[in-house]
Nucleic acid binder design. Structure first.
Length: 359
DNA sequence: GGGGTCCTGGCT
DNA sequence: AGCCAGGACCCC
């Protein structure tokens, strides 16, 4: 099975990897291989190229499954727009270092290895859609670079940041940064003109709620939204403006853990049920981030965003016809069922997750 | 609450 | 040859 879906944990791994390896690097050139991946960049691919070229990667941020890179102008100031990346369901970001620099302790300048490294660097992966040619760290003045620069030993050579996407549900685009100061700190009066970079968000991402791993995640706000809707709980869990970072797989896992049926109206969840559900979501995401935690370092020359999927121990998703783990624990055999839901699949235990009483 | 659209390739 | 998955966003 090729191409696992990038979920929040994969996107976070990619974010951290770029933060470690690519910040501070100027964009020397942009190669648009397939303009469909820039569908959401309304000014068009040519504008995307020229707008990005000459700016440097500055900071790497994430909200839910959206990733964005802030940019430095040539004079080191923060650019007023950021590069937004969404991996969709088959996207990857691959980072490749240009060979030739002082590669750390490597002494033998074996020309065979050198040309192999060059070939690997030049190889064009299948489904490559956009390539960013990055220069060495600090090749132009990027005095304002924040958030950790690229690892020192590789920082002297160029690098390629490749956007690969088989199904083109993902994409890249530029979006203006707007302030989004969490309510919890808003009272500490952030000066209007001087909003810290971490409280800026691309306009296109502003409607996305903070995810459960975000330090400013607001469970009370989620609860309020639950109470205001008539939708079933799974639909609400998948609504990125209510709570972000939860896809079809983790929704089923969290609902299984919280013993809730996907069609139970969100507003009928008790406060305790809501708390348990949000705890389940948080746990699922956190465990997956830890388990899928193949480090960016191990992967970044090859494949990113493909970590750990098979390792994940799933209790619900994809387990139709298999015994419910919790029922088995209780000495009971209940077979998990698959049901169509919003043109896709829902998996649940018919015993633990009973249908809500119809009204 | 429902449905459609984007897209590819693996499956029947 | 046709179906279908999936995230985000669109419309009614």
């Amino acid at each position: 099975m090729e191409g696992t879906m990038p979920e929040l944990p994969e996107v976070e791994t990619v974010r951290a990897g770029i933060a470690d390896h690519s910040l501070g690097r100027p964009v020397r050139a942009v190669r648009v291989v397939d303009a469909r991946s820039l569908r959401r960049h309304l000014p068009g691919p040519a504008h995307f190229e020229t707008a990005l070229t000459g700016r440097a990667l500055r900071g790497a941020y994430r909200r839910g499954k959206y990733l964005w890179l802030t940019l430095s102008e040539a004079d080191g100031t923060l650019a007023d727009e950021a590069l937004v990346v969404h991996l969709g369901m088959s996207g990857q970001l691959l980072v490749r270092d240009e060979p030739g620099g002082d590669s750390g302790s490597e002494s033998g300048s074996d020309s065979g290895n050198e040309s192999e490294a060059r070939a690997a660097f030049d190889e064009q992966p299948r489904h490559l859609r956009v390539a960013l040619e990055l220069g060495p760290v600090g090749a132009t003045s990027v005095a304002g670079a924040t958030g950790g620069a690229a690892s020192a030993n590789r920082a002297n050579t160029g690098q390629r940041l490749l956007f690969v996407d088989q199904r083109i549900f993902g994409g890249m685009f530029l979006s203006p940064l707007v302030p989004d100061v969490p309510a919890a700190v808003a009272t500490n009066k952030v000066a209007p003109g001087e909003v810290p970079e971490r409280f800026l968000v691309p306009e296109a991402v502003k409607h996305i709620a903070r995810d459960p791993l975000d330090e400013f995640f607001d469970p009370a706000a989620v609860r309020r939204k639950f109470l205001r809707t008539s939708s079933g709980i799974k639909k609400v869990l998948l609504d990125q403006s209510v709570i972000s970072g939860v896809g079809n797989i983790y929704a089923d896992e969290a609902l299984w853990r919280a013993r809730l049926h996907y069609a139970k109206p969100a507003r009928t969840l008790s406060a305790a049920q809501t708390r348990e559900l949000l705890e389940a979501v948080t746990q699922v995401l956190r465990e997956s981030l830890a388990a899928g935690g193949t480090s960016f370092d191990a992967l970044y020359v090859n494949v990113l965003g493909e970590s750990g999927y098979f390792e994940r121990s799933l209790n619900a998703y994809g387990r139709a016809g298999e015994p419910c783990h919790r029922c088995a624990e209780a000495g009971r055999t209940t077979l998990m069922v698959r049901e169509p839901f919003q043109n896709r699949s829902s998996y649940r235990c018919p015993h633990c997750q009973r249908a809500p009483r119809s009204r």
